[in-house]
């Protein structure tokens, strides 16, 4: 409920880049660094990110990938991020990460019958580059980057739900809706109640988060797989653009958290439902 997060911690803020810088020096392998193009955002963690996510593969910067974040971060625990890699043909995987977050990997989308588009909300611990890396069949990573200016504290703050004594009874309750788009895709918005504990909060709650959402249609026709990590905000709320086969009337979602609980949902998605207008184009 606070306007801006109160759990700002100067030590964390200064310590993470400092440690990160040391790590970079320590692990910098010439073979990796040589292939990695310079970072337009000059992140101290860029080389480390290259090693962590690209492992020597070819990397190119792709300004045509839209990574949209708000100009004002009102709540560090709920920062909306929209990633649109439609400008890159043949995306097989879309990885979102934030260099200066304590946990950098945010999510990975594998679009099978889906558009390389995802929007969600995430926690940030400080101002950080937010990047979307799109892998194409030729093994190249196309990276879109934006700098998110934020004060921080989102990762080390306990989930709001922890204030409710009976929060565990609502875990897994899912809500969702589908809108058929003029281009034939189905825009699916899905929300699932879950604390998404990072394991980094001050009250020592261990990591507890939904790690996978499998979206299918009909008899298990795979549309997309979404792997979520700890930085995704409490009560994950995602928007996806799926190519639901025309004969199908529902999108099924199978979820699993890191405690082994599974979650099942079915979102009605027929041609009877449609949006009135195409979504506006967002850009920064």
């Amino acid at each position: 409920m606070t306007t801006l997060n109160r759990r700002f911690d100067l030590r964390t803020r200064l310590a993470i880049p400092a440690v990160a810088a040391l790590l970079v020096v320590a692990v910098q392998a010439p073979a990796v660094a040589a292939d990695l193009p310079a970072d337009p955002l000059n992140s101290p963690m860029w080389t480390e990110m290259g090693a962590q996510f690209f492992a020597g593969a070819k990397v190119v910067h792709a300004p045509s990938i839209k990574v949209v974040v708000p100009s004002i971060v009102e709540d560090q625990a709920q920062v909306p991020v929209t990633v649109d890699a439609r400008a890159i043909p043949g995306v097989t995987r879309l990885v979102v990460f934030a260099d200066l977050n304590p946990i950098q990997h945010v999510l990975t989308l594998t679009p099978r019958k889906a558009v390389p588009f995802v929007s969600f909300r995430m926690k940030v611990e400080q101002g950080t580059p937010v990047r979307a890396a799109a892998l194409t069949a030729d093994g190249t990573w196309h990276v879109g980057s934006v700098y998110l200016d934020a004060a921080g504290g989102g990762c080390s703050a306990p989930a709001m739900a922890r204030k409710d004594a009976d929060w565990s009874e609502t875990v897994g309750i899912a809500q969702g809706k589908s809108w058929r788009q003029p281009d034939g895709t189905s825009r699916v918005r899905f929300r699932v109640r879950h604390p998404m504990d990072t394991g980094l909060s001050r009250n020592n709650i261990p990591a507890y988060f939904i790690e996978k959402l499998e979206l299918t249609a009909g008899k298990g026709d795979g549309l997309a797989t979404l792997e979520l990590r700890e930085p995704v905000s409490e009560n994950p709320t995602v928007t996806l653009l799926l190519n639901v086969p025309s004969g199908e009337s529902a999108v099924k979602v199978e979820g699993r958290d890191n405690n082994g609980s599974t979650y099942r949902s079915s979102i009605p998605s027929s041609f009877d439902q449609s949006a009135l207008d195409p979504a506006p184009t967002v850009s920064r």
């Binding site: 897994g172 809500q175 929300r191 609980s261 599974t262």
Partner: peptide
């Protein structure tokens, strides 16, 4: 938007599922 949107989502998105076990 940041204040109001999450409330709308919680209140208005139809329930579509839950915990399997």
């Amino acid at each position: 938007l940041t204040h109001i949107y999450p409330k709308l989502e919680a209140e208005r998105l139809p329930q579509v599922g839950g915990r399997a076990r």
